[in-house]
Simulated assay, not measured.
Amino acid sequence: MSKAPASPTRDRIVEAAGKLFHRDGIRAVSVDAVAAKAGLTKRTIYYHFRSKDDLIAAYLQTRDQPNVAIFQRWFAEATGDTADKVQAIFRHLAENARHPRWKGCGFLRTSVELMNLPGHPAIQAGRAHKKRTEDWLCTIFAEDRAEQDARALARQTVLLIDGAFSVVLLNRDPSYMDSAGEAAAHLIRA
């Protein structure tokens, strides 16, 4: 699937859609609402995107690299060993979850809304993002352990991250993110 080249109008559409998707969820937002938010016509939206599905996927694709980059930055800025640095990622996530407008992971929320459509382009974008995060963690863990062990540990850490996102959202209690960070640190040191 080839992407349309980036343009200011396309970027404006994705930005408007992203704000609405974040606030209301992807199913609740119509293409008409995106057009109104972007100050464009529905026809202009469809000039840049074949469907709402492609727009949802584009929104998630724009979140991929920034989300991985923030994890990488938090890891790099943290002090201590690898376990401490990974735990710092969870501390930052807990801090973010304390913000009143926090709504969790957009990739996970979208996957819940589209759970009956496993081939949806947004599900594919979410899957790619989670894989990229796992691969990055694997690279870190492979510095001092066998590839197979590093891969297993990366997978376990992603499970802790995503599980914490879910439980924090459900309970509105960011301390679950801190608990997941402690668990990740224990796993890494084991």
Results as ranks from 00 to 15, higher is better:
M1V: 13
S2H: 12
K3W: 13
A6V: 14
T9L: 11
D11N: 09
I13R: 09
V14S: 06
E15F: 03
A17R: 10
A17W: 00
K19I: 03
L20Y: 04
H22S: 07
R27D: 15
A28I: 06
V29F: 01
V29D: 01
S30N: 02
D32F: 04
D32N: 11
V34M: 01
V34F: 02
Y47T: 05
Y47I: 02
F49Y: 07
S51R: 08
K52E: 03
Q61D: 09
R63W: 02
R63C: 10
N67L: 13
I70V: 10
Q72I: 03
Q72E: 08
R73V: 09
W74D: 14
A76W: 07
T82V: 14
D84S: 12
K85I: 08
V86D: 01
I89N: 03
I89Y: 02
F90Y: 12
H92E: 12
A94G: 04
E95F: 08
A97T: 01
R98Y: 00
P100C: 04
P100S: 08
G104R: 01
F107I: 04
F107M: 13
T110W: 07
L114I: 10
A122D: 05
G126P: 05
K130Q: 08
K131I: 10
R132F: 02
T133R: 05
L137R: 01
T139I: 04
E143N: 11
E143L: 13
D144K: 13
R145N: 02
R145Y: 01
R145Q: 11
A146G: 13
E147C: 05
Q148N: 10
Q148C: 04
Q148D: 15
R151P: 05
A152C: 02
L153V: 01
Q156D: 14
T157C: 15
T157V: 14
D162A: 01
A164L: 07
S166A: 15
V168M: 12
V168C: 14
L169F: 09
L170R: 10
P174S: 03
Y176K: 11
Y176P: 00
M177F: 00
D178S: 06
S179H: 11
A180I: 13
G181V: 08
G181F: 05
G181P: 09
E182D: 14
A183R: 13
A185N: 08
L187T: 00
L187N: 08
